[in-house]
Design a protein around this nucleic acid. Structure first.
Lengths: 352, 352
DNA sequence: TTGAAAGCGCTAACAG
DNA sequence: CTGTTAGCGCTTTCAA
């Protein structure tokens, strides 16, 4: 029965082990391993060979301890947010190509942001990237005093921010709907969620710009399906009813779809719906939701670049970097009034 | 313009700083900070006060370097898997209450499992927990030679495993359907995905047990919506058509729902559908999917406990620990043949 | 109860 | 090009 290994009894090979075996000093090994200048090609080769042979791996901690650099960027993310997953993927890529590593710290049901950040701090990361933080701005600016801090997907004054042009996203949604011929376009907002204020503003501006100031209709929503469903119920009671609705995010938009269809309204015939995020949800063929996509990769790249610029002491011009959103048209939007006589039958048949 | 802090110029307070300020030796501070025995209550209090005052935080790396213990458990997870998110939440809780910390390493589009594991290894974690690894068993057993390794949600021989009783899950699904009166029950499997083989086996056994060996019908599927949709199309061409289908997972099950409804079949009237995972997806009111739930919290707890048992050198009896699944009945299952005349109208009205 | 001193694995001066 | 030496911040004997 080949059991698991013992805890730490079988010491890993160290620089000294490699040095002894290669017949050189540890300093030389260090230089060779780091691919730094100052060693002959022949010696380097021999050292690398020996290192490989005995399976030597440098000890990150000792390295950091000595050089006082960790090359570590802390990332705080919500483990349940699909969009954060996209961002983390991009962050890994960007960090790696810049010679940095990521220290991940998740926010979970029982582990709040504060905890996640504290743990990152103890990891001695050199900079920190916070994805959609809910922490109060005061704490964030204080944190930014201690190390380079980049806030992603949330507008905070006084710290470095990378985010989507949320307002522009909603403007695109409204423009699209107006282009289809809609006038009574409502907005179910995100309440106090990050980005909600900007999206609300984008909606307002776009409506004004199209001369539809009189048609403005905002109901309070939130992040979840239930929030969207609640908002939809309010809107369906309106008279006249809106012909289209731009919703805070995809998740909430699915709640709208559900309520609309249950009420016998055809989507998009009776009601056009636009989401936000281009999440996996929106892409599901059951929803096939018209939505506003955020550029996760671009955001990630900018965030890492900014963190490193701070680390390098490069001059910063704009503290807020904003990436353009992109409307993805799918099947939940169409010209208004294409009401289909079968519409009421879209209510699923009651089993039994 | 209050700019961000410099990289590492403003040195953080060290043990020595605290010692100097408190007028004691570093050794004493170390003892006090760690809450170890060997210092008078008065002195300890004073030290802790000073530490607090100058904002001292112990340096994890140096600590580890010296004590040769990291109290770090590495966790490798898929950043896009909702279920992994649940598990990570539980792992944090379990690790914390055992005095360990987690080092997270994500598998992303451009970062494979091998990379994620290697990075964990360099972090000098003492044990490793792999969530649904796709890595070949050979590499896993090799890895288990180096440190305590716990594989979660995948059956691998020769290493410690914690997983749901996948077979039992599918048996519960079949039992439920049989109880409702179904006989032609099909299974769209998960292909080569972790757990797929066991779920397939569970399906087979349950069908045999109910004397429905002649009705066994398995089609190859996979992890995604598209896999489920493909499988559903195959099944719908069957004559006679199955009245119920147990699908590999929720995500794939939504593909089945989509195809069924588009084809004018009522769910559950014409076709009952059972998923697996009890993911957020299943809980959406649009799907309201009957599904088999896994006990994420329990799995997480067992995984951490096992890792620590290995670390402590405790004797292990069973290498494989299996948690019971639980069927969650929602609205996609009902007795068969409750075909509704309106069924064909469930096809969404074509706009325009 | 307290302090001095050694050293974890590594890097960065400097000397040869 | 190579080796020696001195720590990084911490824990841990061992004496006092």
């Amino acid at each position: 029965m080949p059991d698991n290994a013992q805890p730490g009894r079988d010491r890993r090979p160290t620089l000294a082990d490699v040095a002894a075996r290669a017949g050189v000093s540890t300093a030389l090994v260090s230089i060779a391993i780091r691919d730094a200048p100052g060693v002959s090609a022949r010696t380097r080769e021999r050292i690398l060979l020996v290192a490989e042979e005995i399976g030597y791996r440098p000890d990150t901690r000792a390295r950091l301890l000595r050089s006082n650099r960790s090359h570590l960027i802390g990332v705080c993310f919500g483990v349940q947010h699909a969009f954060h997953g996209d961002l983390v993927g991009g962050l890994y890529d960007a960090a790696e190509s810049a010679g940095y590593e990521l220290a991940l710290s998740a926010v979970t049901a029982n582990r709040d942001e504060r905890r996640a950040i504290t743990s990152l701090l103890q990891d001695r990361c050199e900079a920190m990237i916070l994805l959609g933080p809910g922490t109060p701005p005061g704490y964030l600016t204080e944190l930014a005093q201690r190390l380079p801090l980049v806030v992603v997907a949330r507008a905070v004054r006084g710290v470095d921010v990378v985010r989507t042009a949320d307002d522009e996203g909603l403007q695109q949604a409204v423009d699209h709907l107006v282009g289809l011929g809609h006038r009574r376009i409502a907005h179910i907002d995100g309440g106090r969620a990050p980005g909600a204020a900007d999206r609300r503003r984008g909606y307002l501006q776009a409506m004004q710009r199209h001369g539809l100031g009189a048609e403005i209709r905002i109901v309070t929503g939130g992040l979840t399906e239930e929030d969207g469903a609640d908002g939809a119920r309010v809107l369906l009671a309106d008279d006249p009813r809106p012909t289209a609705v731009a919703v805070f995010n995809d998740r909430s938009a699915t709640g709208v779809l559900d309520v609309a269809r249950t009420a016998g309204l055809a989507v998009p015939g009776d009601l056009s719906v636009v989401g936000f995020d281009n999440s996996r949800l929106a892409r599901l063929s059951q929803f096939d939701l018209t939505t506003v996509a955020q550029d996760a990769e671009g955001i990630a790249r900018l965030a890492v670049a900014r963190a490193i610029d701070r680390l390098d002491g490069n001059p910063i011009t704009r503290r807020e970097q904003i990436t353009p959103p992109q409307l993805i048209v799918r099947s939940t939007t169409s010209p208004p009034g294409q009401r289909n006589l079968l519409a009421r039958a879209t209510k699923p048949p009651i089993a039994g």
